[in-house]
């Protein structure tokens, strides 16, 4: 299937936007020295920003950036959010409270603990009433999220917003989960090309002979997302940044994979 990328948003502490990420990937610029702890949360009301969970400010940052890059009103777009582990910090906090004094669970922390909290905050902040979802597929989260976005765009004949994000693990969960730092990516995916289009994506399926490790990133951007649960999707951004048309295999479960080919759009 063929879809078109209309807009891109990226955030990691040392990759605060897609422009910086492209420059670092291409080797045109070094990784910045300074690193923000987390995005500013500009979309949220001032009194919400400080308390908003990391996953929420991260997802909203890249979502807004992708919509701006696409010059598309967010209210027009169904939202497909996907995260490998969801908000590991809220989960750690809730679980710690439940283990010690369950009656002290806070209502706000509870509604922040649902996997669709980030997409909920996004639709509330933007007034977007179209369909929204929150997915997970373990190591295949980006691939399955991209598949759902492509299928939605093509079957419903409209652009959609895909947002993938993962944050660092803290506390007892670190004994079973590995993820470092903050990393979020958003893509506006459309079924047809127009003047906004940045590139086209050809998605197909492949059989893989055995358990195949994801392609390793080969750009200086890798250091900015190293250890994050979504780091394996970085080669997809590298293909886009470089206009690299070599097929990229995104492993799926059980000896299957998605093949992704990025090309410049033919008008």
């Amino acid at each position: 299937m063929r879809v078109f990328v209309q807009g891109i948003g990226v955030w990691a502490p040392k990759l605060p936007d897609w422009q910086t990420a492209q420059a670092v990937i291409r080797g045109d610029a070094a990784l910045p020295e300074m690193a923000a702890k987390r995005p500013t949360g500009a979309l949220l009301a001032a009194n919400e920003r400080r308390r908003a969970p990391d996953t929420v400010v991260l997802a909203l940052e890249v979502a807004a950036a992708a919509c701006a890059d696409a010059a598309l009103d967010p209210t027009l777009l169904p939202s497909i959010f996907a995260s490998t582990h969801g908000d590991l910090s809220v989960c750690d906090s809730m679980s710690t409270t439940l283990a010690a004094s369950p009656e002290l669970v806070s209502p706000i922390k509870f509604h922040n603990s649902v996997h669709n909290a980030a997409v909920g905050y996004w639709t509330i902040a933007t007034g977007a009433v179209e369909a929204s979802t929150a997915l997970s597929a373990s190591n295949e989260t980006f691939a399955e999220g991209l598949l759902e976005a492509a299928v939605y765009a093509l079957s419903e004949h409209r652009p959609v917003l895909l947002v993938v994000y993962d944050i660092q693990v803290v506390g007892g969960l670190a004994s079973v989960t590995k993820s470092d730092g903050l990393f979020g990516v958003a893509l506006v995916i459309a079924p047809e090309a127009d003047q906004r289009t940045k590139c086209q994506l050809d998605i197909d399926w492949v059989d893989l002979p055995a358990s195949v490790a994801p392609e390793i990133s080969c750009s200086p951007a890798e250091a900015a997302v190293s250890g994050n649960a979504l780091a394996p999707m970085l080669p997809a951004l590298e293909r886009i940044a470089r206009g690299d048309t070599r097929p990229l295999v995104l492993p799926l479960a059980r000896h299957r994979g998605l093949s992704l080919v990025v090309e410049e759009t033919t008008p």
Binding site: V114, T133, S136
Partner: peptide, 23 residues
């Protein structure tokens, strides 16, 4: 988050798209 989807995929032996929806 994908515990359930992953378990059902293994229990059935499918190799098509597999995802857990959490809304």
């Amino acid at each position: 988050a994908h515990s359930l989807g992953d378990f059902v995929q293994h229990a059935l032996g499918t190799s098509g798209p597999c995802v857990t929806v959490n809304t």
